[in-house]
Computed example of a mutant assay.
Amino acid sequence: MVRAAVLPAVGAPLEIAEIELPDPGPGQVRVRLAAAGVCHSDLSLTNGTMRLPVPAVLGHEGAGTVVAVGEGVTEVSLGSEVVLNWAPSCGSCHPCLLGEVWLCAEALSGAAAVHARRADDGSDLHPGLNVAAFAEETVVPVSCLLPAPEGVPLTEAALLGCAVLTGYGAVHHSARVRAGETVAVYGVGGVGLAALQSARIAGASRIVAVDVSPAKEELARAAGATDYVVASETTAREIRALTGKQGVDVAVECVGRASAIRTAWESTRRGGRTTVVGIGGKDQQVTFNALEIFHWGRTLTGCVYGDSVPARDVPILAEHVRAGRLDLDMLVTERIGLEGIPAAFENMLAGKGGRALVTF
């Protein structure tokens, strides 16, 4: 038995409970977690913004060590250090065949996900986003694993599984930021901090960080921001003032609110690009009129998992880490145990800090 953070029902508080894991079956692997990041997507699952079966063990950003393997597993062995991949691609659906593996139709179906049981009442536990990382150990399909990169501590490598892949991918794959361009990043949480660093790596000439909290300015500047704007009704105007009244070339929205998406779009120049990373509720309606769409010639795109190919991009990110261009440790503003996850959710709602990291 191992300890885990269990969501008993949508809207209910998390419970720390002992769970029983099955032995790994064919194609499955048991992993002892070293660390798991607390992501806004986990919060979205608790409050119903994103739907999943419950009760469930949440957590999808993690890294650890293989402690058991099932029949037919050759990709990893006992003692292998791995990063969890919560959205493994099937390789055969329409998006996968187009090379858009981040849009895999089967990735979130849960068909191959491994279920655990609560030790106290035997109830079935769904693995949230396939990997159930808010637990001391988890059993997953081998397709949900990536080799942990050499030279990167496991506790930091956990962040590669979501926050960094998403922030880096939003800048490099979705927005395609080019050297010399100007960039605004909305939301200075874990993903936003990764996006700021990625914009710096891309060679952006000016990087504006936007957040509701004045307290995050130092953190944002450490990540690469050249300017900091506290979010308000005049944000777009302030950003245009910083860029010769033109607006930035690219805005990356990491909040998931209609007002932030609209402001990000307005803060770009004519012909600018806005990439939406934040996950908002279906009640968050963003409106545009037909004339302004024509006149401004801007583009607005969604972004899933940073439009990333994890097997390709994690080694690239690791090289940036080893070269000192990407600082994973600075994304982490709090290290906690499983019991600290509810407080981390509250801090997230209040706009406090960067990434909270559960360490085992």
Score class of each variant (00 low, 15 high):
Ala87Tyr: 02
Ala87Asp: 03
Val69Gly: 03
Ala107Lys: 10
Glu71Asp: 07
Glu61Met: 07
Ala111Pro: 05
His60Ala: 07
Asn85Leu: 09
His94Trp: 13
Val76Tyr: 13
Leu108Thr: 08
His60Asn: 03
Gly72Val: 05
Cys93Gly: 12
Ala105Cys: 10
Leu98Ala: 06
Arg118His: 00
Gly62Glu: 07
Ala116Phe: 01
Trp86Asp: 12
Cys93Glu: 09
Thr65Lys: 08
Ala112Gly: 07
Ala113Gln: 05
Cys90Lys: 05
Gly99Leu: 02
Leu108Pro: 02
Val101Gly: 01
Ser89Met: 09
Ser89Ala: 15
Gly62Leu: 05
Gly62Asp: 04
Val76Ile: 13
Gly79His: 13
Gly72His: 09
Val82Ala: 08
Ala112Asp: 14
Ser109Val: 14
Gly70Pro: 00
Ala111Thr: 14
Gly99Gln: 03
Val69Trp: 07
His94Phe: 11
Val66Gly: 09
Glu75Leu: 06
Ala107Gln: 07
Val114Cys: 07
Ala116His: 01
Leu103Met: 02
Val66Asn: 13
Leu58Met: 02
Trp102Asn: 03
Gly70Trp: 03
Cys104Ile: 09
Ser89Glu: 11
Ala63Glu: 00
Glu100Asp: 09
Gly99Ser: 06
Val76Thr: 12
Gly110Trp: 05
Ser77Ile: 10
Gly59Tyr: 00
Ser109His: 11
Ser109Gln: 12
Cys104Arg: 01
Glu106Ser: 12
Arg117Pro: 00
Val57Arg: 00
Val76Lys: 15
Ala105Asn: 14
Ala111Leu: 14
Val76Asp: 14
Gly62His: 12
Trp86Gly: 01
Leu84Gly: 07
Ser77Ala: 15
Val101Glu: 03
Leu103Cys: 05
Ser80Gly: 02
Arg118Gly: 00
Ser89Gly: 04
Ala116Lys: 03
Ser89Leu: 10
Leu97Lys: 13
Glu61Phe: 04
Pro95Lys: 09
Cys93Met: 10
Pro95Leu: 04
His94Thr: 15
Gly91Ala: 13
Val67Arg: 10
Val114His: 06
Gly110Asn: 05
Gly99Tyr: 03
Ala112Leu: 10
Leu103Asn: 02
Thr74Lys: 08
Ala112Glu: 13
Glu106Gln: 12
Glu81Leu: 12
Ser80Asp: 11
Leu58Ala: 01
Ser92Ala: 15
Gly64Ala: 06
Ser80Glu: 07
Glu81Asp: 14
Val83Trp: 04
Gly91Ile: 09
Gly91Asn: 12
Ala105Met: 14
Thr65Val: 15
Gly72Asp: 02
Pro88Trp: 05
